[in-house]
Nucleic acid binder design. Sequence first.
RNA 1: GGAGAGGUGGCUGAGUGGUCGAAAGCGGCGGUUUGCUAAACCGUUGUACGGGUGAAAACCUGUACCGAGGGUUCGAAUCCCUCCCUCUCCGCCA
Length: 424
Amino acid sequence: MLDIRAIRENAAAVQQRLATRGRGDEAAIAGVLALDQQRRQRLQEVEQLKSQRNQVSKQIGQAKARGEDVSGLMAGMKEVSDRIAALDAEVAQLEAQLEHALLVIPNTPHESVPVGRDAGDNVEVRRWGEPRPFSFEPKPHWELGERLGILDFPRASKIAGSGFILYRGLGARLERALINWLLDLHTREHGYTEVFPPFLINRAAMIGTGQLPKFEEDMYRLRDDELYLAPTAEVPVCNMHRDEIFRAEELPRYYCAYTPCFRREAGAAGKETRGMIRVHQFDKVELVKFTRPETSYEELEKMVANAERVLQLLGLHYRVVLLCTGDMGFASAKTYDIEVWAPGQQRYLEVSSCSNCEDFQARRANIRFKDSDGKNRYVHMLNGSGTALARLYVALLETYQQPDGSVTLPAPLHSYMGGVTELR
RNA sequence: GGAGAGGUGGCUGAGUGGUCGAAAGCGGCGGUUUGCUAAACCGUUGUACGGGUGAAAACCUGUACCGAGGGUUCGAAUCCCUCCCUCUCCGCCA
């Protein structure tokens, strides 16, 4: 959520930054300003009346104590009270409208973000390694997985529907190994604290990180309870500290968490439906940081490096991409994507997305810290995948496939696989 | 799921219709004292949203906030209703 005061004081600049996203979000600012103006006007009126009421009520109390007749005073105050009730309702309605208007406006991109329309305008920042050369035609993961008997898409459909994965045997073991290895890596070597949160999320938390109210149709929701399936661990982990105030010395805080991620992928039907590139449920280890505002951009670079380390240790070729204004997510001010090379499909796959949301989520979730001058300020919140498992799995299978269809496993996973070094 | 108890400021905890933003204690901050530490003593101590003054730091002022939302009343932390959460017991269950 953007700061209403910043909008009030700098409307043109905010509009200009929003316009770079190319979605017309800047158009909402005029309405926000009008609502804000009305709200403040009504607020002044009602507060003046309340002041009057407080004074007279006090007089009534005192007069009564002296045994005087107060029926005249009381009669007059009834009208004031009714007027207050009416104005209060008006203010509440304006506030609700203003709140909603602000909740559906995306974050303003940071000035270092390239302006662009879509993914085509993203800027490649660096590459690591290079695509593995093949002496044979590399196969896509769905062929490898089915042949090895570790991925079973038809049976996943039988249970849930299309867009779900069933791992079995060493395939299931590999998924579990990756989860454990990633959590160990980030907690032991990168200083993150492990969190295992609920996978069901209430509405307030979904609003806190920005999934709601705008993206309701992308979320799985329970029928009988106001609960949603976690679309990413970002949601529970960020909301851990909702309505809290950190002491300055408690920052930065690093958390990592494994959760499955549930996404309806509404509107994405038909796109990339083959295999496990885009599915309704996938596993992910997520990194989340709460930082002071001054350090959040350094922390973003470090977070990207932490995610890159995953691919480096696994020996997977990747590139880092800085998203342009038009391709960034709703809550983000700056995002790097990490894309791993999938030789079976001759393309890069997004396995991580690391974002600095600045105070956008902190304002929604009301997460602050007490600064050295005693003032409460909003923290900056960052989140990044470290990494998404399904696509990492794809890259592993396709990169380390052998001519006979077997797959060797990179060294870091051997112990996590109980000594198994290849799938065949 | 059933029965009961409870949710007050950073913490503990008083407050059952009016002068309560809220006693007291602890903690925090500032000061006195001190070679240092501790203790003692004095003072101070919330947040949000408006309005005003100021270049700003800040200051002045109003309103709201005692789990959340409604209601009664001239006036609600206090009375009523609904909901949420915590604790205890019972039931059920991995």
